Computed example of a mutant assay.
Amino acid sequence: MPFSSIGDLAQTFVTRRANTRLTSELSKLGTELTTGLKRDKGTALSGDLGILTALERSVTELAALSSAAKEAKVFADATEARLGRIQDLVQDLGTKAVLSQGGVGGNVESAVIAAAQDAFATTVSSMNATGAGRFLFSGTATGTAPLRDADAILADLASFVAGAPDAASFNAAVDAYFGPGGGFETTDYQGTAQDLAPQRISQDESVDLGLRADSALFRDTLAGIARIALLDGGAFVGAPAERQAIIDTAIGGLRGADNGLTRERSVVGSAQGLIDRAITRNASETTALDQTRISLIGADPYETATRIEQTQVQLESLYTLTARLSRLNLANFL
C-alpha cells in the first residue's frame, strides 16, 4: 500500500514552524487583551487606514490642547491668587491710612509707614511670583523676574525724591519715577515690553493672560504704597501738613488701585471660567474620539480570551505530540 512520509529533519522544521506560529498568535492575542485594541489594524479596517490616521491626529491635537489648557489654568490661578494678595494689602493699607489721619506725627502714623514698607515688599514679591514654571508678569520673558528687589527700588526712589521742597513736588517726583521713561521703567522693570501671547486652550478658543508688572495698574499700586513708605526717611519732619498731604494723595492712589485690581481680577476670573469649560470640553471630545477608535479597532475581551485559551490548547497539544514523537524508536518495536 503506498504511503508518504517526511524525514526527521523535515518533521523538526514543521514542528518548529507550528510552534512559532502558535507562540506568535498567543503573543498577539495577549497584547490585544491587555490593550483592548487589535494589533493588526490593517486587517481590522480592511486595509483602509485613512480614517484611523485622521482620528489619531485629532486625538493628538486634543491631547496638546488639553495640556495647554491645564497649564493655562495653573498660570491663571496663580495670577488670580497674586492679584488677590496685592488687593488685600492695598485695602488694608488704605484703611490704616484713613484711620491715621487724626494722628499724623504720632505712633499711628509710624504704624502706617511700617505697614506700607511691608506692603511694598510683599507686593513686589507677589509681582515676581511664578505659575506653571513661568514668571507671571514679565511679558514674554517668562524666565526672568519682572522686578528688582523691593529694597533696591525704594532706595532709588528715595534718592530721586530727596530734596523735594513740599508735598506737591514730592508727589510729582513719585509720579515721574513711575511714569513713562522714569526709573521704574528703565531700571526696576526687567521684563519685556511685549505681552505674553494668548494661550490656545481649545480648537477655537484662547485666553489672554498678558498682564505685565510695568502696567499702569501695577505702577499706580506701587506708587500709592511707596508714597507712605518713603515717609520713614524723615521727609518733611516738622511739617505735618505736608506729610498729611502726601498720605492723602496716597489714599486716593490706593483707592484707584483697589478699583483697578477689582477690574483686573474680574478679567482673570472670566479667563479661569473659560479655561475650566475648555478643559471639560476637551476631555469629553477625547472620550468620544477614544470610543470611536475602539469601535474601529477594539478587540472584544471575551472573544480574545476564548481565542487565547484555544491557542494555548493547540500549543500544549503540539508540545505533547512533539514529546511523543521524540520518544519513538524503531528498535522498540523489533
Rank of each mutant, 00 (worst) to 15 (best):
N259T: 15
V112I: 04
T192W: 03
E242S: 11
A213H: 14
Y177G: 05
T35I: 01
L328H: 04
N332V: 02
G191V: 06
S46V: 03
E25N: 06
R85V: 11
G50A: 15
V112R: 00
A68S: 15
A54W: 02
D208T: 08
T15C: 02
A271W: 07
L315T: 10
R307H: 06
T95Y: 01
L261P: 14
G273C: 07
G106F: 15
L37I: 00
S215R: 00
A235M: 03
D290Q: 14
A155N: 04
L26Y: 11
T130W: 08
I275F: 07
V112M: 05
T306I: 11
A257H: 12
T95I: 09
L99D: 14
S110K: 13
S295T: 06
L334K: 08
G139Q: 07
T311N: 01
Q199V: 10
L289I: 04
E71G: 10
R265Q: 15
L62G: 08
R327G: 01
L274M: 14
L49M: 07
R212Q: 03
L211A: 13
F178P: 02
A278H: 06
G181T: 11
A132C: 11
A72Y: 06
T311H: 04
L22R: 06
E32I: 01
T249S: 13
Y177Q: 08
I247G: 05
S295E: 09
F135S: 10
T12V: 13
R277A: 14
A235Y: 07
G183D: 09
A172N: 09
T20F: 11
L231P: 01
L37Q: 04
V90I: 12
G163P: 00
I153G: 04
G102C: 09
L321T: 14
V267E: 14
G106M: 09
D214I: 13
Q272N: 15
D151L: 02
I228E: 02
E109A: 02
Q87F: 06
I279A: 05
R39C: 01
T304L: 06
E303F: 03
S266R: 14
D118C: 04
L330V: 05
I251Q: 10
G94P: 00
A141I: 03
Y189D: 05
A173R: 12
T221D: 09
R212E: 06
E61R: 15
T35G: 10
Q11C: 09
S284F: 10
I297N: 03
F184L: 04
L22H: 04
T186D: 08
G163L: 05
L254C: 05
S66P: 01
S317P: 00
P165E: 07
T187Y: 01
I6R: 13
I308C: 01
R227S: 10
L65V: 03
A158G: 10
A168C: 00
G181Y: 13
L261K: 07
T60I: 09
D175F: 06
A78N: 07
S4G: 11
I279S: 08
